[in-house]
Amino acid sequence: MGWFQRLSDGLGKTRSAVKQSLDRFLGRPPDQALIDDLEASLLGADLGARVVDRLITQVNEQARSVSGTTVADLQNLLSQTLYGVLKPVAGSSLEELLNKGPKPFIILVVGVNGAGKTTTIAKLAQRLSQAGRRPLLVAGDTFRAAAIDQLQVWADRVGAELIRQRHGADPAAVAFDGIVAAKARHADVVLIDTAGRLHTKSNLMDELRKVKRVIGQELPGAPHEVLLVLDATSGQNALAQARQFHEAVGVTGLALTKLDGTARGGILVAIAEELKIPVRLIGVGEGVDDLQDFNAEAFVAALFGQPAGAS
């Protein structure tokens, strides 16, 4: 079962409830019970109380002011509003960036602990090699136990080169080595792994700033992409993560992982609205091929079901 199917199934109950109530409400504005149902499903998708309150207000207004409003109209209204928020952040795909960008194209991957940074790098490396590019991996997590070995295993599997130093080395120095090696070996894309860190730890955020600075000194204009990896399972805290990482190192793209579970990553909406950072990728499994481009339409459809008329 695909992630889209799973996402949709998660909200299937709400959708069928909505459909059933269609009969009950035919020709009349929807009642409170329906609005409550809607609210519950929106909250359950991690959209957050503030976004949900706003959406519900909109729905209420439309239901009251436009006579003959049907449930399907409301569903459409929601989909369209969310699509409006998410479409701008669908942005360019990574492929497009690489096509336009310089060589080597440097991608710095950041995020909180366990979000999926290392695995996302592996998946990206696989995708890039298959597209005929030469990725170079850089083991910038010198802190977590066996983080370097983890990336080495992936590098071997996907047949990419890895630049590494010993455990405990200065991550900025490893990144520096990576850039030097990329230039010497004519790599197309450099994927720099970093240690997971909570956005509230200022010393660790400073360390990340330093990594970025050193990269820029060695290759002016780099990194060309700072990719923040977010776990779709996380709730409202993801907004704080995005804010703090953005402030520290200027995030230019997002990757949302673990969408193959039952979580729905609704927090993306608040992040998109506030920070307007493009969502580049979604992770839908632990395998090396479980990576897809973000598609705003599919994402909204998975949250709410297909817009009326389409299903």
């Binding site: 909250l43 359950g44 998708a45 991690d46 909180v112 366990g114 776990d231 399972t233 996380s234 709730g235 409202q236 805290n237 993801a238 993560q241 579970g261 039952t262 979580a263 729905r264 927090i267």
Partner: peptide, 12 residues
């Protein structure tokens, strides 16, 4: 469990 988990914590 991760302290940052959202609404899905109950299902999980």
């Amino acid at each position: 469990a991760d302290a940052m988990t959202g609404q899905d914590a109950v299902t999980m």
